[in-house]
Write a protein that binds this DNA or RNA. Structure first.
Lengths: 339, 339
DNA sequence: TTGAAAGCGCTAACAA
DNA sequence: TTGTTAGCGCTTTCAA
């Protein structure tokens, strides 16, 4: 035999086994595994790499996390990862995090504040290095993160909390453009299918709708409020159709609602955009494949996710908290009446 | 002052701080935090709870994981969590895992085998207690998990590997029913929009389509193969419409494809189900809100996810590997021609 | 019922 | 360039 026989030690292979097999110290193994902080002679490195391969060594992340105080993990809290908007967010965050060697802990809060708080607490206990939070409320409770000194970034929010990093779009302006576009098609009675939010102040999308109407000298159209879901949009659609002054165009505050709305319209035998034109908000893929394809205000989810991860554990880490506004873009398709 | 002053020790609060503050040993703190393995006098317990609250103590999960050799985390590997089928799977797995105190590490492999392998490796290094794998291939590489003695369950797969726990539906039978239903509406020329899979053998859905046709004494309709995406379905739809023998009904191998197919049909000015009837596979919510709503074969994703988690870290842990087949159900809506 | 202490696998400061 | 070793925070055996 050349070296010590490949240890028949039970259990998983540790750095100690590798060290013994390669005939070096555990420190050296660390150095080659982490590429530092000390240099290692090429020959030694080769021996170690060899031992690692032969033994099938895999570093223990828990031990590393304990020692370093970092789990190389980031947490994501969303209301419901099944919602296309959040599933895209999750995907983008995962990509950006993986790029930097971080893994993604996904939690759903089901639009439930207590659950959201529990999720945050749990993530904090797990020593995540940062959390991306798409909260169900305007001013989420961040104390658990703060006391653990875990950075966080809020998503999809207006500039409510001064002391927090957050990213979002200008809801007012986005909605305004979508409604203005409807007005430009000659519509005089433009309704609103609005998602119900938990804040006190009116949602930016509602303000944007109002603003566009005012700018165009149009009267306020009918409003139907319902959940930010397909079901919600469907219900809102039925109510809007039944309203005394049935609108000739409707702005939906999310693509999901618009999809439900479309169903209500189709069921009523109405043609879109012929009888009623529609625009919505989010820019999810689903909006591209509805019938007719939805004209919608795109949120740059990927960019926001990347910026969030960068702020948490990437190049922008440690920058002072601020609210960053991302540009929206009107994706013109057919539901508005454009050819 | 009553007890030692609340330690001004820097950094996060550890169990040592709590012990000092409560005037007990660290072992006792462990006992009360974990509710065992030793009993603690009520008075002592109260003191400890108090200290925990006052100090804002949160146990360090990394240390716990290191000591216990378990991270109380399970990993999920999917091709793309943006796909409604997988987003539902992720949600269901997260729910089931959270129920048992486990967190969910989400990874996307982007339909890329190398990335899938990397993800699995990474999860293994992170000491996850189990992995739910929706692989891009039939016989995924599980060696990293096996060598780390991490249990895994394969999802959405036929009974290929004997030594692995897996769950899935009977694709053949599900597809057969969907196609049979089309035939029962009197269709004689039933096409297939088939997703491209990586295996050698024909996908079960294709076999089921064939079988239903044979059972009904019908000739083989045209096939269009494309990706398991909306885009793929759209492309397949256009090809099917251009085919010499344009079918009067089409079975799509996934809801996503069906949605794309529907778009192709609408663009061609065809009415569904009037001109062409459609059924598909998966039973995702999106299929309920397409126009017309899709008749589709539902996979019990939630049940499969729950069973997977149970097999990994729940009641069924340690049971011998086997393939479990879950029942499908035809969700009848309008795209097939039913009123 | 409580406490002392060993050690999980790793990193990095310090020594050689 | 390499090795020794203290300790990260926790659980749990063993002793008191």
């Amino acid at each position: 035999m050349t070296t010590q026989p490949a240890s028949a030690s039970r259990g998983p292979v540790t750095r100690k086994d590798v060290a013994r097999y390669a005939g070096v110290s555990t420190a050296v193994v660390s150095y080659v595994v982490n590429g530092g902080p000390k240099k290692v002679a090429p020959a030694t490195e080769a021996k170690v790499q060899d031992a690692i391969r032969v033994l099938g060594y895999r570093p223990n992340a828990a031990a590393r996390a304990l020692k370093l105080g970092s789990s190389e993990t980031i947490g994501l809290v969303v209301p419901d990862n099944t919602n296309p908007f959040y599933s895209l967010l999750a995907h983008a965050v995962e990509d950006a995090a993986a790029e930097l060697g971080y893994a993604l802990l996904l939690t759903n809060s089901a639009g439930n504040l207590a659950k959201e708080r529990r999720n945050i607490r749990n993530l904090a206990a797990r020593q995540v290095d940062g959390v991306v939070l798409a909260s169900v409320v305007f001013e989420p409770d961040l104390v658990d993160l703060e006391s653990a000194e875990i950075p966080s970034v809020l998503l999809s929010h207006s500039d409510s909390q001064a002391e927090v990093t957050s990213m979002g779009v200008d809801l007012v302006e986005g909605a305004r453009i979508a409604v203005e576009h409807l007005a430009s098609h000659g519509h005089k009675n433009i309704g609103l299918a609005m998602g119900t939010t938990t804040g006190d102040e009116a949602d930016g999308r509602e303000q944007g709708w109002l603003k566009a109407l005012a700018d165009a000298g149009l009267p306020e159209g009918p409003i139907a409020r319902s959940a930010f879901t397909r079901e919600g949009g469907y219900a809102a659609g039925k109510r809007l159709l039944a309203s005394a002054q049935r609108p000739s165009a409707i702005f939906a505050s999310s693509d999901l609602q618009a999809v439900g709305l479309l169903r209500a319209l189709h069921e009523a035998g109405l043609s879109v955009p012929g009888d009623i034109a529609v625009t919505s908000f989010d820019g999810s893929v689903e909006a591209e494949y509805s019938w007719p394809p939805l004209t919608t205000v795109e949120q740059p989810v990927r960019e926001m996710a990347e910026a969030a991860v960068r702020a948490l554990v990437g190049a922008d880490r440690g920058e002072p908290p601020r609210h960053r506004v991302f540009p929206t873009r009107l994706l013109v398709r057919q539901s508005c009446g454009c050819p």
